[in-house]
Design a protein around this nucleic acid. Structure first.
Length: 608
DNA sequence: CTAGGGTTAG
């Protein structure tokens, strides 16, 4: 569980209601006000309400106004209706994702002294969690206790889930441990599932597996949800065989995999490019009588597209329509992306029309995909046309759209337009994200605006908002490539003290920089540090250091490095090979006898 | 008719 602590910024604040006033302020100052005031209308009679409630309970509360109308009428009734009726209304709002209205209504109920109970409180807490007002959620927890109720497993699970969804896993863990330690509640499957999912989402799969065993030992039977979280996590870590094993374990224990299990496995096979294993799994789904759903088909469409088989992807869509699983906007976006990937922009645009004629309306992402397609083809004017088309279609470009087009402009050296678009993006109220930071920094370096790049990086450093290894890697790369090796080294050396873990790409960039700057010894030291650290070298690392050794005329060491690489089951890449070939004397040079014998010896050894 | 209304996975 301790490994959950890796998530940054998760300081333990405690669970008091000290911030009650602050939370109230938040509630009033945001859009949490009801859509209209709760002024009870007159001349409502009880039977009328019963009729309304009866009707609504059959068709559900479709509109927000329905719920508000019912609330008004409910308030009229004397004697007061059972709390449950009010809770049902709150739940209806939650189902409509009208969380702020739900919270306001709850507050109204409290002001009117409607005697809410633990279920009502929990529903209100659930709404707060969706509104990012966790402080208020915890003040409601205090409110529960003050009202003489006892928070139960539902209440705490809602809060834990809220903490996790707010990226506060440390506090979620604390709360969970506290509950167990003080035996406040007996965790049930749902609570274990919440924690296990939290562990999985913070890449603590082994911890999740431990907790799975622990819950079983404590007599809490895991269900499909428990296993699916872990299966998903294993697949994302490309441990799809472990995922498959876990599924056979669950089946053995009498817990049947469901469509979500199979979808996660299919996705896992796709991530690991194990196309040959997909067909058997689909067959097994058929045997188990689990029909594929929309997600299954979307995974298949994506897999075909990723492999460039857009025809097969289209066939899958045909099958979907046949089987009455109508494609959605994701299906069509995936197919469009497939066409963009192969540069077939006309086909991608056809898909856009197909989806419109099927009354599936393109979203912002549809346009981003197309814009990305044009950027890849270096057709920036087409991309900009599409960007301008979006508002006409009632779509507002988002950060991702702007990131895509800014990246494209930089690639084409259209630096001046980047500035315009960046300011447009800010004016539209889009906050730059970490990807924007990376694109800007990289673009400035690659377009040789070195001073601008450096000052941008310094700004990011000062603000400390950009606590991101990729941004630092980009800066190191940019500095190395522009003859500022020492500044690059300074940043690299400071990474650990900033709590940033250099990854294999960071290392490869630094090693290449060192080799090209003639600091081969230092590059070798860095490689050996990698071999003993958690960041294992990959084929790029070995090829980089080998090219470095050749560049620095260390032919004996090149032999050792190549053998070392082959011992690690990596092979020499094309770039390294051509470098060796270049070492050989050219035909026209053959008569000259200046060739270094060590070079010849090495090249002969390599080519034998 | 003694529950009903609230928690967890893509």
């Amino acid at each position: 569980m301790a490994a959950m602590l890796v998530k940054r910024g998760a300081l333990f604040h405690g669970y008091t209601c000290s911030s009650l006033f602050h939370s109230h302020f938040l509630l009033f100052s945001t859009n949490s006000e009801p859509k209209r005031p709760f002024i009870p209308s007159s001349s409502t009679t009880h039977p009328q309400l019963q009729q309304l409630l009866y009707e609504k309970s059959k068709v559900g509360f479709n509109k927000l106004d329905d719920a508000l109308e019912v609330f008004d009428k409910m308030l009229q009734i004397k004697p007061l209706l059972p709390v449950m009726k009010f809770t049902q209304l709150l739940t209806a709002l939650v189902r409509m994702k009208e969380y702020s209205v739900a919270v306001s209504m709850f507050r109204e109920m409290r002001l009117l002294n409607i005697p809410v109970d633990i279920v009502t409180f929990t529903t209100a807490i659930h709404s707060c969690c969706h509104l990012n007002t966790l402080d208020y959620a915890f003040s409601l927890l205090a409110g529960i206790i003050k009202s003489g109720w006892v928070p139960d497993v539902y209440t705490y699970n809602t809060l834990i889930k809220g903490l996790l969804s707010q990226d506060r896993p440390l506090e979620a863990e604390h709360l969970f441990r506290k509950l167990i330690r003080f035996r406040d509640i007996q965790p049930d499957v749902a609570m274990y599932n919440t924690i296990i999912d939290g562990l999985c989402k913070t890449s603590n799969t082994s911890m999740a597996l431990k907790l799975l065993r622990k819950m079983e030992k404590l007599g809490c039977k895991p269900d499909a949800i428990t296993y699916n979280s872990i299966v998903d996590s294993l697949c994302k870590e490309r441990r799809v065989d472990n995922a498959l094993d876990l599924v056979s374990v669950m089946t053995h224990k009498g817990i049947s995999p469901n469509v979500i299990t199979y979808n996660r496995l299919l996705q896992g096979l796709c991530i690991s490019s194990r196309w040959e294993d997909i067909e058997p799994l689909l067959t097994e789904m058929g045997v188990q009588k689990i029909p594929p759903d929309l997600h299954t088909y979307n995974i298949l469409v994506d897999a075909h597209c990723k492999e460039g088989r857009t025809k097969d992807a289209q066939d899958v869509i045909e099958i979907m329509i046949e089987k009455s699983v109508p494609p959605d906007v994701i299906t069509y976006n995936t197919l469009m992306d497939g066409f963009c990937l192969t540069g077939k922009m006309d086909r991608a645009l056809e898909v856009l029309n197909t989806m419109r004629s099927n009354e599936i309306w393109p979203d912002c992402y549809s346009y981003t995909i197309l814009i990305n397609g044009y950027c890849k083809r270096h057709e920036l004017d087409e991309a900009i046309n599409l960007l301008r088309q979006m508002p006409v279609e009632g779509l507002q470009p988002d950060v991702e759209t702007y990131n895509t087009i800014i990246h494209g402009l930089f690639q084409m050296g259209r630096h001046a337009e980047v500035h315009n678009l960046f300011h447009e993006m800010l004016k539209q109220g889009n906050k730059p994200d970490i990807v924007t930071c990376r694109i800007l920094l990289d673009g400035l370096f690659k377009n040789r605006y070195i001073d601008e790049a450096i000052s941008l990086f310094r700004m990011m450093e000062c603000k400390d908002t950009v606590h991101d290894i990729q941004v630092h890697t980009i800066a190191i790369d940019g500095l190395c490539k522009n003859g500022k090796l020492n500044e690059a080294r300074k940043i690299f050396d400071k990474l650990a003290s900033r709590g940033l873990q250099p990854n294999v790409i960071t290392h490869n960039i630094m090693i290449r920089g060192l080799c090209q700057g003639g600091l081969f010894e230092e590059a070798k030291i860095l490689l050996s540090k990698m071999e003993t650290s958690g960041c294992l070298p990959d084929d790029v690392t070995y090829n980089t250091i080998i090219r470095g050794s050749l560049l620095n005329k260390r032919y004996e060491e090149a032999v050792v490095l190549i053998e070392n690489m082959q011992a690690h089951n990596f092979s020499v890449d094309a770039s390294t090979t051509s470098m060796v070939v270049d070492l050989l004397p050219k035909e026209e040079q053959k008569e000259h006898e200046e060739q270094d014998p060590a070079v010849l010896a090495f090249a002969k050894w390599f080519l034998q």
